[in-house]
């Protein structure tokens, strides 16, 4: 099950790579606009910024765990890799911070429909981050990547919380 999910993600990335568009300029422009939007009207608890090497196609992002969830008070780092035909293909998003979550596997891959087949060009970095933030509070337990977490979420909230805290550690990428 987890394999099939991985496959879809890979094929999406491949489609993105294959269509190396002549409009690299428009991708840059779009990302710049998104960045400006994020900066001028930031959403609480999420932020994102291009990576330090100045490559606009790969970003870093931060999500604060929402209150009233097992993740409250924790911050999670993510990486965004935008395909060259963005926004017609979704970015590849990974959790950099180890997270214990039903829809995230141990290497940080995420199972979220809008990052795969439900992606449309109307989404952007901010909406993806907000979706991920809400995913922390409401995991989709029908298609888990981490079966144990999905089970615990329903059965033993205490244990779940313990596992979350045990798994979480701050990463500093430099």
């Amino acid at each position: 099950m987890s394999f099939s999910a991985e496959d879809t993600q890979n094929s999406a990335a491949k489609v993105g790579g294959a269509r190396k568009g002549p409009d690299a300029q428009s991708v840059t422009k779009r990302l710049q606009t998104e960045l400006m939007q994020l900066m001028t009207s930031p959403a609480p608890g999420v932020s994102a910024f291009p990576s330090a090497d100045g490559n606009l196609m790969s970003w870093g992002a931060t999500i604060e765990g929402p209150d009233d969830t097992p993740y409250a008070g924790l911050t999670f780092k993510l990486s965004f890799a935008f395909p060259s035909n963005y926004p017609y293909a979704p970015p590849t998003v990974l959790f950099k911070t180890p997270i214990y979550h039903p829809n995230v596997d141990f290497s940080g891959r995420i199972c979220l429909d809008i990052l795969k087949d439900k992606w449309t060009a109307a989404y952007n970095t901010q909406t993806v981050l907000l979706s991920l933030q809400s995913l922390l509070g409401e995991p989709n337990n029908s298609s888990p990547l981490n079966g144990e977490a999905a089970e615990l979420w329903d059965k033993d909230a205490e244990e779940f919380k313990r596992k979350v805290l045990a798994r979480h550690r701050d990463v500093d990428d430099d």
């Binding site: 900066m39 930031p42 932020s47 910024f49 330090a52 970003w59 870093g60 931060t62 430099d174």
Partner: peptide, 11 residues
């Protein structure tokens, strides 16, 4: 905002 975003997410 840019600087905060940068120092939070890039490095």
């Amino acid at each position: 905002q840019f600087i905060v975003g940068m120092l939070t997410n890039s490095s």
